[in-house]
């Protein structure tokens, strides 16, 4: 009986030594997972995922506090790519969240009073204007995060869905003739 305990103790000691030495030799700093997750997120900084921006949401996912399907602008495709990166099962978008078509904010010039509240609210500085001067949104830089709508006192900002034109028109998925014939 004693020899059994001695043998197991000996094996434990030897392996413990090897592992101790290995953990020192293979010290490794944290791996850049957060940047990889951040690269997938659409960077609209809209906060619909419950975090103040895409970077905090990425850190939360890396730490495992946040689920991968809380980002509506990313849509189902974004969730799938996050699932593939983290090697987990892809999930549908969270409850109550659906991916709206991409849209851009437009300021109605004749009601804007130039109060600069929306300029401070815009996460990507896409609004140009000064106190008591006319404000305008640079359409190419607006991410459609709708953060400038609440602070506007005169509600002169409206969201406009990006229309399909000759440049961004996409070829459709060819309809499977057979399915239609069935």
């Amino acid at each position: 009986m004693i020899s059994a305990i001695l043998v197991m103790a000996a094996i434990g000691l030897v392996l413990g030594g090897i592992l101790g030495w290995a953990s020192i030799k293979f010290r490794v700093q944290d791996d850049p997972l957060v940047e990889k997750i951040d690269a997938i997120l659409p960077q609209t900084q809209c906060g619909q995922c419950g975090f103040p921006g895409c970077k905090p949401y990425a850190e939360a996912i890396a730490k495992g506090e946040a689920d991968i399907n809380q980002c509506p602008p990313g849509g189902a495709d974004g969730v799938n790519r996050l699932a593939e990166l983290l090697g987990v099962e892809p999930k549908p978008l969270g409850e109550g969240l659906e991916a709206k078509p991409k849209s851009v904010a437009i300021i109605d010039e004749n009601t804007c009073i130039g109060c600069t509240l929306c300029i401070q609210a815009c996460p990507v500085d896409a609004i140009i204007g000064a106190a008591k001067q006319m404000h305008v949104i640079v359409a190419s830089q607006c991410t459609g995060c709708e953060l400038c709508l609440p602070p506007c006192p005169v509600d002169c900002i409206s969201m406009q869905v990006i229309k399909e034109d000759v440049v961004n028109w996409k070829w459709r998925y060819p309809i499977h003739m057979m399915k239609r014939a069935a």
């Binding site: 197991m8 434990g12 392996l15 090897i18 592992l19 953990s23 293979f26 010290r27 490794v28």
Partner: peptide, 17 residues
Amino acid sequence: IVVIAGIVGFTEMFIKK
């Protein structure tokens, strides 16, 4: 099992590095 666990632990650290 103890031996295998030790070796796997070692491999895990090696791959993480």
